[in-house]
Write a protein that binds this DNA or RNA. Structure first.
Lengths: 242, 242
DNA sequence: AAGTGGTCTAGACCACTTC
DNA sequence: AAGTGGTCTAGACCACTTC
């Protein structure tokens, strides 16, 4: 772990512990340089991370301050906002038991749309996966996933039943890097309504995603449809020239 | 504009113009130092901006590469993802005419929930605004907005009929800094269905937002409900230790 | 006028990829 | 072994806020 990551963690934990309270000023850059024994630019880089996480605001000429937000929400918030680790990880630190019903796990030639999203040709093969994910037995979301078999080799039924991200990061040693998402409100199909055990007239939150590995390759095109009354999508936007 | 902003703009425009193509390597950091006559860390800062915008990936030991994405989508994408400028700005560079129907513009004591979101007491007053926004006469979204009158003084009916953000940034000289958002799928109420001229069984995308000024003050709590078939929410997530 | 954070440099050293 | 980007420093100078 780098120095700036350590400093960011330390300050974040002090905010979470209530040592630095909402609206309160945090120590000056120069003080932190002394405290942590680093240069100014390293402190700045650490604090920039906390700005991106939505925890502090910096005001040139005045100092840096804890944002006036729900501290209780912090534990989940920063993680939710990047959301690069999949459904299983959302519940990793909870007692909730995650299971999957696999409706489809096959290798097919991609449709034109899927090939276009994955930036492959229709001659390449892809995994086609459809799963319902359940939390403590309650269906939460239906996932439609496509992954090039060249990029994610060796995917097995067991992985699909458990966690695909585990296979990618732990078995293959690849790193999930970024995701481009589009979110919309939709109505379920008859089949989805049944699979999610939905009442009438419950909308779904659809998240369409193209996901990239650290080496720049696209490894996934997926559409997830979340039962509207049980899922929220979080996002923190910050001016670039913060 | 700073050096790193200029460099980021230059490289981004070269990507948009197709001079640097998807999957192609962009010039080395050392080359860019020569090209732009700056130090390494300035080039790095510029390229970090493009990483956050989802345009490039950087690979230590190998170089930096244009992401394999739709270049055509770029014009809208980076702006959409920060979305800090309101509905009017979304259409600022288009020929679309934005209008508003103001259903409510009053000053009230906030409910407990609103006071909590705005971090004020129920003794403070807030503007309570409900508007339907239309693009070329077609209703697109209903906004429910609350703003403390102390933070945004002098808001008038004309501002609410035109652009509130214009009043905030141009009249008051304040800067919108960041927003924390929660997105869900919901069904319209009977009234919303009428105001948005919706067919039966069309869901809405609800965006609940707490927005901050550069000086750290919360200036807005709003809920916007977008007609589901006409609105998409974009988001780019990137690993922090990119 | 004093104090804050922001930008930028030149350069040392390091982690990682590629060959 | 050679080449890539990443981290970090010490310090100069600047933009902005506060008094």
């Amino acid at each position: 772990m780098t120095k700036y990551e350590k400093i960011a963690e330390d300050v974040q934990s002090k905010i979470e512990q209530g040592e630095y309270k909402p609206n309160e000023q945090i120590p000056l850059v120069t003080e932190m340089c002394d405290t942590y024994g680093v240069s100014k630019i390293t402190v700045k880089k650490a604090m920039d991370l906390l700005v991106l996480r939505g925890l502090i605001v910096k005001r040139r000429g005045a100092g840096s301050f804890v944002k006036n937000i729900e501290i209780g929400a912090l534990q989940s918030f920063p993680e939710m906002s990047s959301q690069l680790s999949g459904f299983s990880a959302d519940y990793a630190n909870t007692p909730v038991r995650v299971t999957s019903v696999v409706h489809d796990f096959s290798i097919v030639s991609p449709s034109e749309k899927v090939a276009d999203k994955l930036k492959i040709t229709s001659g390449d093969f892809v995994y086609q996966i459809c799963r319902t994910r359940l939390a403590d037995g309650v269906p939460k979301v239906i996932e439609y996933t496509y992954m090039p078999i060249d990029v994610i080799p060796g995917l097995k039924k067991e992985d699909v039943e458990a966690s695909i991200y585990h296979h990618i990061e732990k078995e293959l040693g690849l790193t999930v890097y970024s995701a481009h998402r589009t979110v919309r409100a939709v109505m379920p199909t008859v089949l989805e309504k049944e699979r999610l055990s939905l009442e009438d007239h419950i909308p779904l939150l659809e998240v369409e995603q193209v996901a990239f590995l650290k080496d720049g390759r696209i490894f996934e095109y997926s559409t997830t449809r979340h039962a509207g009354n049980t899922y929220e999508f979080y996002s923190i936007s910050v001016r670039e020239n913060a």
